[in-house]
Write a protein that binds this DNA or RNA. Structure first.
Lengths: 232, 232
DNA sequence: GCCCTTATGTCAACAGGGTTGACCTACCTG
DNA sequence: CAGGTAGGTCAACCCTGTTGACATAAGGGC
């Protein structure tokens, strides 16, 4: 918390930058989101932000206490983007599935921000609403208070964990990402059969490791959750 | 791959640093691992590494092409550490569970490295062996080649995703981590009941969100996997 | 319509980061 | 013992977040 609201949300004196831009928290977040996927990895920095807004980098600190503060605001923006217009399916597992896919889609669209955002608690409006939505789905499904919170917790962490992992891979410089992907059809194909018999046995299936396990994992998790729900 | 083995693993001419230390890839990795959890977040840097080894920072580049190369080597070291002495249980779900807990324990012990390591493919010996072990467990359980790879993929990504998330939280500066944790017993307790009825209904259970969902998620995932295995 | 306060943009500086190319020296091979 | 070169060192480059002093224009009170 410590001074989290020392920076006023509403400004009275609006003064344009040297480049004629009228700064605002929203504009800064917009620009940050744009920067982060226009430029390559590490594309987002206070200095680049300053350049993009044609203002001095330090002006950002008039709107956010630190880059961490800015990151949390960005994270909340992404959550809002993910959940905008979401109406949960009547079937609770389908509802959770839909929510998971939305969150993943947004995080993959902003891989570099995803890494920062996924593990944080923004404690801001959009996150409040998302948690409200998720818990409501589970309560309506018949989970008790404790069960709903437990289920939501493991669900959302699984979704965020997978998404963060995929995003981190996407956020790598091209050369590294491709090298990582090639590993399964390359280095892993060259492991000696005698010392790695299991790898040898599945050699022609290893390419699957290069892709995403998100939906498969999600479906298995929901299968498990359904079973837990049914059996008490 | 590009030049991945341009740096020879074995050295002939061993020449001590000004501080009298005989460098080696292993010693550098050792020191890096130690640094990363002796000092706080951002405790690991090439320059600090140089200081700890009493050598010039740039000497590290004689052993690793870049920090990324070093990070992969560290990741592989952690995998080795996690799997050392691991003997899978006869029950395949118990075996996977044991493997998951080991990986998580090591990643949580080195939170800052975990964030770097979890999403990468080290394509090095220890990782080869770990994948071999995991696939072997699933083949022995009766999964076919494709099923074993699919199951391993979604299993390991779930484990790594959760572990990375927890590690990222642990790697935060104390103030930020505590603020994130407090959110559930603090900011989330203050959401208006009328706009957030589900949150209101589970208010006294929300504190659970602050802890770890790892084991709960793991158990639900294994439950799901068991069902998938049984029904096909 | 002016003046004062102060919010807010600007500037310069600091400490730290990865990486590179030139240098030089001590080691190993022959 | 001589020569070639691996490998440690040094200085430089450009990047990063952050801070404190500074200046200026905005807007409220009169």
């Amino acid at each position: 918390m410590a001074g989290a609201n020392r920076v006023p949300a509403e400004r009275r004196r609006r003064r344009p930058t040297r480049g004629g831009v009228l700064l605002s928290a929203d504009l800064i977040i917009d620009t940050a989101v744009r920067l982060s996927h226009e430029h390559g990895p590490e594309g987002l920095s206070v200095r680049r932000l300053g350049a993009a807004l044609s203002c001095d980098p330090s002006a950002v600190y008039r709107y956010f206490h630190s880059t961490d503060d800015l990151h949390l605001a960005i994270a909340d923006r992404l959550i809002g983007e993910a959940m905008r217009g979401f109406t949960p399916d009547d079937d609770w597992t389908a509802a959770l599935r839909g929510m998971a896919l939305r969150i993943r889609a947004v995080l993959l669209a902003h891989p570099r921000l995803a890494v920062l955002a996924a593990s944080r608690v923004t404690r801001r409006e959009n996150e409040f609403r998302a948690v409200e939505t998720g818990i409501a789905i589970l309560l309506r499904a018949g989970f008790g208070a404790a069960g709903a919170v437990r289920a939501y917790h493991l669900f959302i962490d699984t979704v965020l964990g997978h998404a963060a992992l995929e995003a981190a891979a996407l956020a790598l410089p091209d050369a590294r990402r491709e090298a990582d992907e090639r590993a399964w059809t390359d280095a892993y194909q060259s492991c000696p059969d005698d010392t790695h018999p299991a790898l040898a046995a599945v050699r022609h299936e290893l390419h699957r490791m290069g892709g995403s396990a998100f939906e498969a994992a999600l479906d298995v998790l929901l299968t498990g959750l359904r079973q837990v729900h049914a059996s008490g």
